[in-house]
């Protein structure tokens, strides 16, 4: 409402504005003394009840049951988001000029604590029932069409880094098993380090995205052990926690595989 000003101090223009503002309020409902008291009482009671419900809900959320280390309601929230974004998935991340990329920091050694003999390394491929579908040496992967991708690698912690991966598309690798995959529906892929210390699960659609690579090079050089030699997963469409280093086993499966960081409270889907 207008500030009280002595009429003598007001210009005609101000009077006009004051009148226009006041006109906006003429239709506003008014209350008499007893109606105001009733309205106040009702509002305070309703507001108090609503606050109490909110507070109890908050407490329940904080102290209620967990699902893989976060409150079960928030786990459902992650799953709601997954269902929503799956409908929109299939896009590819922007790529950058090679000159913008530089060496990535080493951010985790889960599952790659000890150095391994790279020559003795083998990749095991399993089917949904756990039976062995095949074994590969690195030459099998480097024989596939090589792809170089300069993309922004993103960490759940918040940092990002433009980096260049070299490797084979997972879709090209999966094509080696086209016959078996054609006869069995497999919705997921589980990838595990040789020591089983780190493990990730991804949905098949994300794995078949053309930007999902079985990478053996970083910044044009063979992967170091710290970065997951000899073979790791690299995709700009998932957080770095899904880009498992030193893959030992790849299993095609129909059951949603568990996942190292999922068990520790993170979103299973982790899609960007």
């Amino acid at each position: 409402m207008p500030e009280p000003l002595p009429a003598s101090k007001r210009s005609d223009a101000d009077e006009g504005r004051a009148a226009r503002y006041a006109a906006l309020e003429t239709a506003a409902p008014t209350l008499d003394e007893s109606a105001l008291r009733r309205q106040t009482r009702r509002s305070v009671l309703t507001g108090g009840a609503a606050s109490l419900v909110a507070l109890l809900g908050w407490r329940w959320l904080q102290t209620g049951p967990d699902d893989n280390n976060i409150p079960v309601t928030l786990r459902r929230g992650h799953e709601f988001n997954e269902a929503l974004w799956r409908r929109l998935s299939g896009r590819t991340a922007p790529t950058f000029d090679r000159s913008r990329s530089s060496m990535l920091r080493v951010n985790g050694r889960h599952g790659i604590g000890d150095e391994i003999d790279l020559v003795a390394w083998e990749l095991t491929v399993l089917g949904p029932d756990g039976s062995e579908w095949g074994r590969h040496v690195l030459a099998d992967i480097t024989a596939l069409p090589k792809v170089e991708l300069t993309v922004e690698h993103k960490c759940v912690e918040g940092w990002s880094h433009v980096v260049t991966w070299g490797g084979a598309r997972f879709s090209d690798f999966a094509a080696l098993y086209a016959d078996r995959l054609g006869s069995e529906s497999t919705d997921y892929v589980a990838l595990v380090t040789p020591d089983r210390g780190y493990y990730v699960g991804l949905d098949m659609a994300s794995m078949l995205n053309p930007q999902s690579l079985l990478a053996y090079e970083l910044e044009g050089e063979p992967l170091t052990q710290d970065h997951g030699a000899p073979l790791r997963l690299a995709t700009p469409n998932k957080y770095g926690i899904k880009c498992i280093k030193r893959i030992g086993t790849i299993q095609f499966t129909n059951d949603r595989p568990t996942d190292y960081w999922y068990e520790r409270g993170y979103d299973w889907y982790a899609q960007l």
């Binding site: 409902p29 209350l31 007893s34 109606a35």
Partner: peptide, 24 residues
């Protein structure tokens, strides 16, 4: 925060039904 009570119109100062508050 409940249903808005119907406006009480009219009533100048001095009567019990004078408007003392306006919806904001």
């Amino acid at each position: 925060m409940t249903t808005q009570t119907a406006p009480t119109t009219g009533g100048e100062a001095g009567t019990d039904h004078a408007a003392v508050a306006r919806l904001k």
